[in-house]
Design a protein around this nucleic acid. Structure first.
Lengths: 292, 292
DNA sequence: ATCCTTTACTAAAGCGCTTTAGTAAAGGAT
DNA sequence: ATCCTTTACTAAAGCGCTTTAGTAAAGGAT
């Protein structure tokens, strides 16, 4: 392992003071252009690059922004990619944490971001408990919740308008002439879930139809598997339906699998609409209609 | 924003020296158990947690390990998840970089890892150019290449045995009785690609069959789309085949899409085997046979 | 009673930067 | 010729920790 170059070594090499070199590299106005040029060339030549631990400690700020999500292989993994692009444009440096739906890991991730002096945190929480998070961060750093509406007024969040999205999905189906629409949704109650259910019930009522809501079993972590099982049960239950609205694309993909396996053609015999707009929904084998 | 607690403030609070507090928190043997207990309780109570920038600077090591991949929504995103688990078990702290297949970003990521004093880098390179990477890192940090065999002897790498994997996939097909097998592969030449082709040719020769190799168009970034288009062309070309070996699952999924669309049943009429074992391959709608 | 250990601390230096205050030399104004 | 600015630096302190060397007090050995 080679020794790394430091500011002090570079300064010595140049016969300048450390402060002059530091200022030159940071483009301070009280350094002559000639000196700046010299310093930069020498830095480049010797492969000097500032130690960010020291720089950030001295400056008392960093450009780190934490992105804490539950699973990189989900819609949030795709959002992470867009976020990094946006962050970079603002000179910020995103640090990703995948909590794998483990709230212990989530805690640890937040703690770590605080300790590395991140300037902000974007969080897709495992459990929707903004107060716990606030207690953890102790207001030392701004936090933005992603993906779910947060009740607490003290907290910022960004989420999709699930009511509007659900309406979009269902209207699409009714315009196609569907009336017997079943809904596949999450098991755990949340604001988003109840808004979806509300809209669904409303529309079913307008159609004069019985609402049919199927929540996934709470112990099934694999969403596509859950959608698959749920749809199989649905098929054997004898309930009549011509369309499925799934609250998540992965649920819809599972449903499609079960339907196809049962010899039911999509969309000729049964229509399926998902929600999220994940990459997998667009796959040639799938081509799911979804709300992105 | 609240002021953060420092070691100095905690020491003052306790009436101890900073060094004593530091040692207590780091479990040095020359601090009495009673003092350690006191310090820890007070730290907990005041919400003290060491500034990692300062700690790492003082210790001259970190526990960071960089993981630089090309796309989180790929097999490497899934590997990242396993890697984080393994890293955490060893007290290491993984930092992910998604380069989005941009070699400029790759450079920047490596530079950044060096500047934050990462202890090691695991890299899925955009371009297979180990020497450039070595020049960049200047031997200051160990690098392990992931996913491809690296020719340079100075470099460590971890990859799958593509020859064995290809043989596995093809033997599976021949055991099922297939003889007219086509191969879908990457466009850019690489060691892995030529090893696959070598094995495929060998086996085709043993079968007394003409090898049929279809590389994807080099300008198509979406693999599943590439597989889809390739298979459509294949179908309209009139070439007879009963099985497809795709070098990547995404390619295979695209192929399945084209076959299904053409009314060809899988696996009754045509078999498809992929390679990678990505999550999407196991989806209910897909259920692709693959080499994981 | 004296000397040597051991115990449990503290003091001080250092990690590699940044930033504020200070300053010699040069340049302008009168 | 003198005084005031401006220019282009340097010195020194500080960011929040860790670690090495030093030390007073207590405990043991003889």
């Amino acid at each position: 392992m080679r020794k790394t170059m430091t500011l002090a070594a570079l300064a010595k090499e140049l016969g300048l003071s450390e402060s002059a070199v530091s200022k030159a590299l940071n483009d301070y106005p009280d350094i002559s252009p000639a000196t700046k040029k010299l310093v930069r060339e020498q830095a480049e030549a010797l492969g000097y690059s500032p130690n960010l631990l020291a720089r950030n400690l001295a400056r008392k700020t960093t450009n780190f922004v934490g992105i804490v999500i539950r699973d990189v292989s989900s819609i949030y993994g795709e959002m992470y990619k867009s976020l990094t692009v946006a962050a970079r444009h603002r000179g910020l440096h995103p640090i990703l944490y995948d909590t794998g739906n483990d709230s212990g890991l989530e805690q640890e991730s937040i703690r770590n971001l605080l300790d590395t002096k991140a300037m902000g945190i974007i969080l897709v929480p495992v459990a929707e408990d903004p107060d716990m998070i606030r207690r953890k961060t102790r207001n030392k750093v701004p936090v933005v919740f992603l993906g779910s509406k947060v009740r607490s007024s003290e907290v910022n969040y960004v989420c999709t308008d699930t009511a509007a999205g659900t309406e979009l999905a269902l209207r699409h189906l009714t315009h196609l002439g569907h009336r017997e629409i079943v809904m596949l949704c999450d098991s755990k109650t949340s604001g988003s879930r109840s808004r979806r259910i509300f809209v669904y019930r409303q529309i079913m009522q307008d159609l004069g139809q019985e609402p049919r809501i199927f929540p996934i079993p709470p112990d099934e972590p694999d969403l596509s598997q859950a959608g698959y099982q749920l749809t199989r049960k649905l098929l054997s239950s004898g309930i009549r339906f011509t369309a499925i609205y799934a609250c998540k694309d992965m649920l819809a993909i599972g449903a499609m699998g079960a339907l196809t396996e049962a010899g039911i053609r999509i969309p000729e015999q049964v229509s399926v609409v998902g929600y999220d707009g994940i990459d997998a929904a667009a796959l040639p084998m799938i081509r799911l209609t979804t709300v992105a």
